[in-house]
Simulated assay, not measured.
Amino acid sequence: MKRIILCVLFFSWVFLASSQSVDLFGRIKSDGNIENIHVINKTHQLFTTTNVRGEFTMTVKLNDTLMFSSIQHKPQELVVSEVILKNKIIVIHLESQINELDEVTIGKVLTGDLMSDVKNTTGEAPINFYDVGIPGYTGKLATRSERLLDASRGGLNPVTLINAISGHTKALKAHVEMERKSELLRKVKLRYSETFFELYNLPEDKRNDFFYFCEEDDNFEEACQDKTDFEIFQFLEKKYNQYIESFEN
């Protein structure tokens, strides 16, 4: 009877320990940038990001799997142990990830033979607006569609009136809007694909379709432009649930 009571107490303690939730405080250390690193509780599908000091808080239970990832670091996973659960604090060291680019040769290859290299060189040194003292624009370059749109709206003249009446200006506006949304979608896919699909399973052949589904949302730009990782992740999570529901229907 005594052994039975001890076994019952032991298994009760194990059950309570495994079901107990705690708020885990963590800090990331790395040679690279430690802000906005993705912290994912893969077991319970929870997500957060680190602050400027590399700190985060995550609700965890015993044996939960945490994943740490960012573009600048190698992904790393950690299983919550009894020690971690008891201390309620962890320090994670992430290794920087170097993305090597293929070697690119620009221009003509010089051999070291002066006479041969002189004959093999053409053209003159380029002159920019700074060389001749002319002020120039150094901001973001407008796309072709944006330049055409600006030209179509350039003051009150017969051309701008014709563009407005014919619908040409309206069509250009729509094209500029489409380009802006496509560029935003490209950035969202690049930054969040790996992390998001670690939590939310979706076949490879459906992932692009899912992102286009997000882009079609009227609030896509408002939800993703200049927003935090957490806000964008919440938007993707909401669209994922809608996508799965529509896909099943």
Rank of each mutant, 00 (worst) to 15 (best):
residue 239 K to F: 03
residue 7 C to A: 13
residue 75 P to W: 00
residue 152 S to R: 02
residue 138 T to H: 15
residue 79 V to H: 05
residue 198 E to Y: 04
residue 242 Q to R: 08
residue 41 N to E: 06
residue 181 K to L: 09
residue 76 Q to A: 12
residue 137 Y to T: 05
residue 164 A to N: 12
residue 26 G to I: 00
residue 104 V to C: 01
residue 229 D to F: 12
residue 136 G to K: 08
residue 232 I to T: 08
residue 32 G to K: 11
residue 207 R to A: 04
residue 142 A to V: 01
residue 218 D to M: 01
residue 126 P to K: 03
residue 42 K to N: 12
residue 18 S to Y: 04
residue 26 G to L: 00
residue 105 T to K: 14
residue 196 F to Y: 05
residue 205 D to T: 09
residue 143 T to E: 04
residue 28 I to D: 11
residue 95 E to V: 13
residue 116 S to Q: 14
residue 75 P to T: 00
residue 159 V to W: 04
residue 155 G to W: 00
residue 107 G to Q: 03
residue 44 H to E: 14
residue 239 K to E: 14
residue 62 L to P: 08
residue 228 T to R: 09
residue 65 T to L: 08
residue 166 S to H: 03
residue 6 L to I: 15
residue 115 M to D: 13
residue 31 D to F: 02
residue 59 T to Y: 02
residue 122 T to E: 15
residue 222 E to H: 07
residue 79 V to L: 11
residue 176 V to H: 08
residue 178 M to P: 03
residue 74 K to C: 03
residue 119 K to L: 12
residue 64 D to A: 00
residue 154 G to N: 15
residue 107 G to V: 01
residue 24 L to G: 06
residue 50 T to L: 02
residue 114 L to C: 01
residue 64 D to I: 00
residue 77 E to F: 05
residue 237 E to Y: 06
residue 204 E to S: 14
residue 61 K to E: 14
residue 56 F to P: 08
